[in-house]
């Protein structure tokens, strides 16, 4: 009798959990992520240091040469940075003289990828080691040096989608290859607009892709039928959705074909960013949205910030 009561209690608990109010369930998720964050970061750092130590032991001489080369490159980069700083000052003075406003309305926060694919592998996601404490919020673009990678969690799951959370010390990211990811983009020299969505992960891939998901080409829909789109055309975000800033590289057209209705084109896009080996990414944080809006309103045509 007692055992039956325990079983009933546990099943009832599971059912209650399934019907928890959304704010409470999001709070629980955020708490779990915050508590797990130090362990994730610690173990990830341990693994990376271990791999580095093993590589150094295995190939010490090459690493020493590499370090020398990097020092040289750093010195060159520092010299270039000094030149750029001078140009920046000059540019600022000229802009002030002409009454222009600052172009960039964003800053980048570098994050380490601590986990990939969540716990179940049903979604194309990342978990980053930084969260609200570092200024990261919901629905912010996530990029690498090559282009757009995804966006941070959108708070409440819409249409039953994944419950992505940005907590104090961790952030969930939906990758551009997830079928649930959609972003307004423009394509080709003509600037044709369309919507890019993830085509899901590719099962077949090179063996080294085991670590991370293969970036399958994704699709771009609703391009006007008369548009001239060629293989190799560059696709960038249009900023029309209001979530992702404009001008971020998304990928390159692999092929474009007419859709079934014949009214639109459908393009298969090869991602610009290498999604197979993501170790570090940047979250694009808008700088004071009100100021950014004012800047855009005041800036003359053609002066809007294209990239962060």
């Amino acid at each position: 009798m007692k055992r039956k009561r325990v079983i009933l209690f546990l099943f009832a608990t599971a059912l209650v959990l399934l019907n928890l109010p959304l704010p409470l369930s999001m709070w629980l998720r955020a708490a779990a992520r915050d508590n797990a964050a130090p362990f994730h970061s610690g173990f990830r750092a341990l693994l990376q240091h271990g791999a580095l130590a093993a590589a150094t032991l295995r190939d010490g001489r090459r690493h020493a040469r590499e370090a020398d080369r990097l020092r040289e490159e750093l010195a060159n980069a520092q010299a270039k940075a000094a030149d750029l700083a001078a140009l920046k000052d000059e540019n600022r003075e000229l802009r002030q003289a002409l009454g222009f406003q600052r172009r960039s309305a964003h800053r980048l926060v570098m994050c380490r990828v601590v986990s990939r694919g969540g716990m179940g592998g049903w979604w194309q996601t990342l978990r980053l080691d930084k969260g609200r404490a570092h200024g990261i919020g919901e629905n912010m673009a996530v990029v690498t040096m090559d282009g757009l990678v995804g966006r941070t969690g959108g708070g409440q799951p819409r249409d039953g989608g994944p419950g992505l959370v940005v907590s104090e010390r961790a952030s969930d990211v939906l990758l551009i290859t997830d079928p649930g990811f959609k972003v307004a983009c423009e394509i080709g020299e003509g600037g044709y607009f369309g919507i890019v969505s993830g085509a899901g992960p590719a099962v077949r891939g090179r063996p080294e892709l085991d670590m991370l998901s293969e970036a399958a080409p994704f699709d771009m829909d609703f391009i006007p039928g008369g548009a001239v789109v060629k293989a190799g055309d560059r696709v960038v975000t249009s900023g029309l959705g209001g979530v992702i800033p404009s001008g971020l590289p998304v990928g390159f057209v692999r092929e474009a074909t007419a859709d079934k209705s014949g009214l639109y084109l459908r393009a298969a896009i090869r991602p610009a960013a290498d999604l197979r080996r993501l170790r570090h990414v940047f979250v694009v944080i808008p700088l004071e949205p009100a100021t950014a809006r004012e800047n855009r309103a005041e800036a003359p045509p053609g002066d809007e910030g294209r990239t962060p």
């Binding site: 546990l10 599971a14 399934l18 779990a32 799951p157 419950g163 969930d172």
Partner: peptide, 30 residues
């Protein structure tokens, strides 16, 4: 008894760290 507790705790842990609905994994683990 230990199975029930392990299924509940493990499932809840999985859901809290994942993106699936809370309570989804405890029921399936059971």
């Amino acid at each position: 008894k230990t199975l029930l507790v392990a299924a509940m705790a493990g499932g809840l842990l999985q859901d809290a760290l994942c993106h699936s609905p809370l309570g989804f994994s405890p029921l399936l683990f059971l």
